[in-house]
């Protein structure tokens, strides 16, 4: 059982200072394509957060996909997350991309499969409910994301956290 992370989730969880806590508490998988997006490309472009992420997740241990399936206007990282999910059942992943979520919903309906996913802020709420992080860590984390997540998501997550 593991949590598969895409670049957006990695960056948001890192900025929320929750990534290291998730890594300590659970098994995480970062596909090679995601590692390239969040770490390699980030470092090439000179973003210090990418090195911070690398320190937490360590070197890339996954392999690149030989053939990149076309999911219809989605990126390599998102496609790789879905591939890893379908290959290794029993996992889940956070995702915040409207296009990708639309694709997942369609796939769930047409192929009658359950693809266990939540938005990153909702994933943070579930991590709080299940004792991976504290409520104050979750509240601080979501507040620190600011414009990194949509208002719909942050309002929803904050309302749910308040009830805990």
């Amino acid at each position: 059982m593991a949590v598969i992370l895409d670049a957006n989730a990695l960056i948001n969880l890192y900025r929320a200072e929750i990534l290291s806590l998730i890594y300590l508490a659970t098994e995480c998988i970062v596909p090679a394509e995601v590692y390239a997006e969040a770490v390699t490309n980030g470092q090439m472009a000179g973003y210090p957060d990418s090195s911070g992420i690398a320190e937490i997740i360590g070197p890339c241990t996954e392999e690149f996909m030989e053939i990149q399936p076309d999911l219809g206007r989605t990126g390599r990282g998102e496609t790789a997350v879905l591939r890893v999910y379908l290959e290794r059942r029993g996992n889940s992943f956070p995702s915040d991309d409207q296009r990708f979520l639309r694709y997942l919903e369609r796939m769930e309906r047409s192929e009658r499969v359950a693809i266990r996913h939540l938005g990153t802020p909702q994933f943070i709420v579930q991590s709080t409910i299940n004792g991976l992080i504290t409520k104050s860590q979750a509240l601080d984390g979501i507040a620190s994301l600011g414009g990194g997540i949509s208002e719909v998501q942050s309002t929803d997550a904050l309302q749910r956290l308040e009830t805990l």
Partner: peptide
């Protein structure tokens, strides 16, 4: 996502821990 997956993701997280 809440209606369909929140419970299952929570259970997966618990097992994963």
């Amino acid at each position: 996502m809440w209606d369909k997956h929140a419970e299952a993701v929570g259970a997966i997280l618990k097992k994963s821990v």
